[in-house]
Design a protein around this nucleic acid. Sequence first.
DNA 1: TACTTCACTGCAAACCTTTGCAGGATCACC
DNA 2: GGTGATCCTGCAAAGGTTTGCAGTGAAGTA
Lengths: 387, 387
Amino acid sequence: MTAATSDEGAAVPVTIRDVARASGVHISTVSRTFSAPHLVNPETRVRVLACAEDLGYRPNRAARALITGRTHNIGLIIADIANPFFPPLIKAAESQARHRDYHVFVADTNEDPTAEEELVHALAKQVDGVLLCSPRMSNSLIEQLSREVPLVVVNRQVTGLPCVLMDVGQGARAAIEHLVGLGHTRIALLGGPRSSWTNREMRRAAATAARAGGAELTLLGPNAPTETGGSAVAEQVRRSGVSAVLAYNDLMAIGLIEGLDALGVRVPQEVSVVGVDDIALSRLTRPKLTTVATPTAAAGRTAVDMLLQQDTESPRGTRGLGAGTALGVRRTTAQVMLQTDLVIRDSTGPGPQARPARPLAASLGPDPHCPAGPGTATAATGDAVAS
Amino acid sequence: MTAATSDEGAAVPVTIRDVARASGVHISTVSRTFSAPHLVNPETRVRVLACAEDLGYRPNRAARALITGRTHNIGLIIADIANPFFPPLIKAAESQARHRDYHVFVADTNEDPTAEEELVHALAKQVDGVLLCSPRMSNSLIEQLSREVPLVVVNRQVTGLPCVLMDVGQGARAAIEHLVGLGHTRIALLGGPRSSWTNREMRRAAATAARAGGAELTLLGPNAPTETGGSAVAEQVRRSGVSAVLAYNDLMAIGLIEGLDALGVRVPQEVSVVGVDDIALSRLTRPKLTTVATPTAAAGRTAVDMLLQQDTESPRGTRGLGAGTALGVRRTTAQVMLQTDLVIRDSTGPGPQARPARPLAASLGPDPHCPAGPGTATAATGDAVAS
DNA sequence: TACTTCACTGCAAACCTTTGCAGGATCACC
DNA sequence: GGTGATCCTGCAAAGGTTTGCAGTGAAGTA
């Protein structure tokens, strides 16, 4: 209703000055009306607010950020938005941020380390901090970038920086033990991206667990952490003669099952498959996927909390300090490890030892084993465990 | 290597002034070195660049935006990042933007119209324009917001605003004709969100096509456009006695198939199901989903192009003009309609007429029909058709 | 030599907001 | 009536950058 809401197409930018003029006060009073209302007379306040509403005034967040050093934005950099692993993390981060009056900007790097670096630079001055999820760049580069903007790293351990980790080592161990318990003695590990911390952790833990269980572990990879990455190695899996596979993530596991199916190899009758992540999709495929559930939502929430905490500790561009902390004392660098849980569904079954003769196995019926019914194990609780 | 790269934890913000001091020139020369290099002496330029590199200087984009009125950012607001329909669109938009030296910030609204509005405001001064994908708010609110920041709308027709539309009407028609051709005479339409433009278009087109084909169309909905939204209506579908269903999107279709399966109703033997979107997942389910493929990537690209074109037309905050265009002449408001394609896979089969007696149908074997083999029809070309 | 042209650089205003400081008015209290 | 406190508001600097304008010196031209 009125002046500025005329139907001109182009946006006429209305500033604090226009509001000041319209309501007959100084611009500083208008500013305070928005950023410190208790400091201004209630009468004046309503008048200013009315004028602002009338003119369609919105504080310019860029200008505000310039002087306060606070944008109230968080950057969220992820490797691949098409990977269903990330959306729950993103949503949890967003909701947590919203509670604290922050907004989240998501950016996708297409698994490209160069894009990662560039995006951190681009975001640096437009956000108060960046969440780096499953980064593909080097630790040293991450450390270097952390001097430009506060960083919280997810799914990667960087000394000196706050990290949110998921205990995929424990998950891989549980998966291998599950497979060994089913009678599998030759197991393959489908590796993910070479630069992935998760990948290394899984490999280490799986190797230890296999050795302890007396099973032989074959390493296949690195591979693209996608469905096609999984289906591409189906032939290799078949030739390798293993009876069970632990895949880097659910997407690869699903792709592998598809690929094996195309080769006439049946899951879980001939080969058992375990994934990691417990994405929504893993409950929709046939067979339903046995997988290591990772607490993605909890990770998103925790990461935001850590960033905002670190952020409020050093307000206003951190002018003063710096010299005092020269000798590596740095800021708080808590690292949080979240627990994972093995969810047993239908893609794993008895190994060669425990199995009857081959031809029979193929016609066992729709529900070949199911130790405790599909989807019994609960999703990860995501309890935080400081380390 | 040097001064600023000391190992203090806190980021000491280095500005254009520091670089100027270090290289012995005025700040304006430093500025030009970055924003208009051809205006500065090559020797000076290398010196300045060396100093900048040395100090770790990065232009402050917020400050730059404040004065130029250009942020080189694009906002992308979507209803639900967990819906696999969106990632291809996001990725295409990002890649297109990157080519034009823009960055994309994605924000998720959780299908909440209030969050949508709030996000537009929050983004307004931090981006040069916003892509509004499948908005849930009212047309009038969209028009109002478009005065605050340039907008391009995807999957919604708003007069006076640039829009990128997908011809779901044509898609729904093709789907109904396909089903009628298979002998189905009682078909249900699983509706999506009430406020969705796509939903209305589909309903209209499906109704017309059904009437033309002599089939009876039952409307079920509105429903949440998710997998659970689909599985929730399985019982209702069974009771309704229809032999075929066209779902609002693939997620619902897949959920419905799951739900029907749980009730012992087999797809496509007893009920045929068609989805919309052709998300990657639709090729992974059993049965593989017959669906209307929408050109999501092309939509993302096109939307960015339209935004940037509109953007470059009116540089620098559009100070001058405005009065001249008062009478609804506005800026260019091209609307683009992208084509869709029906992809026939395994979730649709012959209707009751064409079928043998009921009891037999249940044991027909794995591949009941397959008119032309799975996945024959090609994905949508996405040719733009101005309208 | 005088004049023009050119390439380069410095100056200062501008963008929009926040905020420390100080001034003015009002009020209570002694 | 004087003192102090309290509440509200204005002033002006600051934040980091861009950019029109003007100035400098050198090279080119007549």
